[in-house]
Design a binder for these strands. Structure first.
Lengths: 244, 244
DNA sequence: GTCGAGCAGATTGTCGACAATATTTCGACC
DNA sequence: GGTCGAAATATTGTCGACAATCTGCTCGAC
């Protein structure tokens, strides 16, 4: 099985490293992007020599990159049997969402203490944009605002550890990218929940901010759970997306 | 600076890999252990060729190991300047504790739903042992029971993602290994808190379990915060340990 | 005496080659 | 015709070597 020729995407810039300094880091970023963006299918075998020519580096560098990606949870590696793009099941996706939620709640709490006025202003503006998108019925743009909002809250938390962990979890999820806002009636409630979070942050109330974020994320998780349950029956909607 | 001869610990078993299969994994486990157990000091330079001879593997394998450990957050790596054992500041230690707390709260919630009767029994037994240690005044043994308890809750959660993340965070902390139970009066309250957590898990109440764990961990964080604040003044107690 | 240029040593970045192991293919035998 | 075994192939595991880069030191000029 898996006899298809390695599509491998990204035709490779060249054999020469151009003149970029650290070829290995470049290779890491490139391969990571290919996995995260979904250009490489799950369970796709990652043959070292193939990657070496594709990425324009030696096999040793590829091996290092693979080790990093395995530690990051993006590839799995069986001894003497090579590496494959990691396949995340829906159950794992739910786990990841839960863990991410726990950490984002912490981030919201910290943001309530450490957010600058400029950051709060940005959140308010984003909220306004989201409201506009909602009225215009542009749910996709709303979802983008949603993402910007969460990113800003995390940034405002100045919690390096939480930020790092959330980024890692996010990378494992992008393939899924569910967007709960597309569920009928979800977006309106989502907007109210976000408003409350920002209110708490602006008021500098950590408990309220954490609680609001937790409340928000529990709804997201519930929606996700329902979607995956339903999905088990008529599995025909690949664009069935979720997003916080 | 740093002219001291690399102490490197662990005299190396041999040049031959004995007959263990994957030498690289062995090397990874060994070096990781050396860092985590504190045999290698923070900011200690990790010269590849030295590690190669110490661990009995080639430099390529060392390089791979270093990449994994960097991704894991145990070493830092500056381009062309080599790797060093990562130095975690007390501020970062607090961050890690907070993140770990958020994830353990999640684990407690899941454990309330998924714990088997056998696991609950184990927790009750551990609780009994802790109580005995408390009466006997053996705080160190109490702390061990403490660790077993938390490990069991995490195991009972069957939450692979949370388990993985917590393990990673724990590894970065072992150097510190604060033991809050050594703070006067802390251990008694700690015991009550743990009892409440187990009660909630046995009752199968996720909300209560999460809340109890959150309550417990907030106290741990507070104690830790006070300790580090005090520590800033008379920094003379290296055995100043914290533990959940 | 101090400062900068240039040199020497040390260390990392990168690579291809060789050995060990798994997978596939092909042929012989039942 | 099917199945078991053995060679052939493919792929990974490991290593030392070479080049690039950084660090520290010496030496000369001001």
């Amino acid at each position: 099985m898996d006899a298809m020729p390695p599509p491998q995407s990204v035709p490779t810039t060249a054999g020469r490293n151009g003149r970029g300094r650290i070829a290995a880091d470049e290779a890491y970023a490139r391969l990571r992007e290919d996995i995260v963006r979904g250009r490489l299918m799950p369970n796709q075998r990652l043959v070292e020599v193939d990657l070496a020519v594709t990425l324009g580096v030696g096999r040793t560098a590829v091996r290092t990159v693979l080790a990093r990606l395995e530690q990051e949870g993006l590839v799995v590696h069986e001894p003497n049997r090579g590496a494959r793009v990691r396949m995340v099941t829906e159950a794992e996706a739910l786990e990841i969402t839960q863990a991410r939620g726990a950490l984002e709640a912490l981030a919201a709490r910290e943001a309530a203490v450490k957010a600058t006025p400029a950051e709060v202003t940005f959140m308010r503006e984003t909220l306004a944009q989201m409201s506009a998108c909602l009225k215009a019925g542009d749910l996709l743009a709303y979802s983008d605002g949603n993402a910007r909002m969460h990113a800003k809250i995390i940034e405002a938390s100045r919690h390096h550890t939480a930020t790092r962990l959330i980024a890692g979890l996010k990378a494992q999820m992008v393939r899924f990218q569910y967007r709960t806002v597309l569920v009928p009636g979800r977006s309106a409630r989502s907007f109210v929940e976000h408003t409350r979070i920002v209110d708490a942050i602006e008021a500098g109330d950590p408990d309220a901010a954490e609680a609001a974020m937790r409340y928000h994320l529990s709804h997201v998780a519930d929606t996700l759970h329902e979607m995956t349950s339903a999905h088990a029956q008529h599995r025909a909607s690949p664009s069935h997306l979720v997003h916080f």
